[in-house]
Computed example of a mutant assay.
Amino acid sequence: MPLPFVKMHAHGDDFIIVDRRGLDDPITADIARRLGNRHTGIGFNQLAVVLDCEDAAARIKFWNPNGTPLATCGSATRGVADRLMHETGAESIVLRTDRGLLTCVRESGQRVSVNMGEPSLDWAAVPLAEAMDTRTLPLNGSPAACSMGNPHCTFFVEDLAVIDVAALGPALERHPLFPAGTNVHFVQVLDRGHIRLRIWERGGGVPLGSGSCCCAAVVNGIRRGLLDATVQVQCDGGTVGVHWAGEGGVVLTGSVEPVMQGCAYL
């Protein structure tokens, strides 16, 4: 079965979009794993399946390259929004994800912003295995935790260059404190409006960037009193902007760029 796709990236966070509006959804965990393999498939950090929706321009389902589903992806949401806004000529669009209804807006240049919704700060919503203050977890390094529709754990470090993300990330992802696993961030605060971020992504490894991880890292930094409301987040693949006023939705803004289009065979 031929499966048309478009591949895009946002500050190095690469994803493929499969538009199935008006069609069936053939994606299963096995197919997502096959497509996500960077040697025998297409390769991606996330797969976004675009489906019909009654109360939004489209509904998006997300998959990790290991075949696990996820509720949200800031980069791929902005990529889908970019394509659909080009299609219709609109300057804004509302998309439905498992995170809820997300409003996306065309910004100057090739940038798109998305309101990722309000972060969940309670221990049960992250989720954590037991009740505690999510601003300071009882782990070495005293990280903070929150959820952006998926779980996040943020370590604040003095020198990011000495952190071996690939070595530390897997054990932290699967730590018993996180019954659903977690994304893991390592953050060096450069100043109150600028951080350097490296990521271990749940179900994906070390990406060049991640929209939801950027949002969560800024939220946790603001909660710890380290950051202002608007922050530039420098990832391995580029820089995005995050704004959070301490309540309400978190707004993620950055460029999205097409890479290729093609046809996979299932």
Score class of each variant (00 low, 15 high):
V251C: 11
E91Y: 04
G74F: 01
E91D: 15
G254Y: 04
V165G: 07
C235Q: 03
A125D: 14
L47S: 09
V49F: 06
S108Q: 13
L23D: 14
G248D: 09
V80H: 01
I16N: 09
M1G: 15
A131H: 07
F156D: 06
G246P: 08
E91P: 07
G241T: 11
D30G: 11
H175A: 06
S120T: 09
D25A: 06
L197K: 01
A144Y: 12
I17A: 06
A56I: 06
P179H: 03
A76I: 00
A57Y: 08
I199R: 03
D52T: 00
G249Q: 05
I27P: 06
D159E: 14
V206F: 11
G221L: 13
P179W: 09
G74S: 02
H243P: 08
H86Q: 15
G36V: 02
S142D: 15
M1R: 11
E107Y: 08
R111T: 06
L51T: 12
R83M: 15
G225S: 05
S212Q: 02
T239E: 15
N64Y: 02
G43F: 05
L84Q: 02
K7E: 08
P127N: 00
L70M: 14
I42E: 12
L101N: 09
P207D: 05
G74A: 01
P69L: 00
L3P: 15
G193A: 11
D98E: 15
A125L: 14
G149A: 13
E201I: 01
V256M: 01
T134F: 02
I17N: 03
T28S: 13
F155A: 11
G246Y: 06
R38K: 14
F186D: 04
L128T: 10
T97K: 07
N37G: 00
I163Y: 04
V206G: 13
E107S: 04
G211R: 10
L177S: 03
H194R: 15
D13M: 08
Q110N: 11
G36H: 09
E107W: 04
L101Y: 04
V231H: 08
N183C: 08
L47K: 10
G193F: 03
V259G: 05
G117D: 08
I93E: 00
R99C: 14
S108P: 12
V165D: 09
G209A: 15
G249L: 03
P65W: 01
I60G: 01
E247T: 11
M85S: 11
D122N: 06
G241W: 12
L252Q: 07
I27D: 08
E247W: 09
T72M: 15
N66S: 12
N45T: 08
G100P: 00
S255F: 05
P26S: 02
E54Q: 15
G205R: 13
H194S: 14
S212A: 02
N45H: 10
S113D: 00
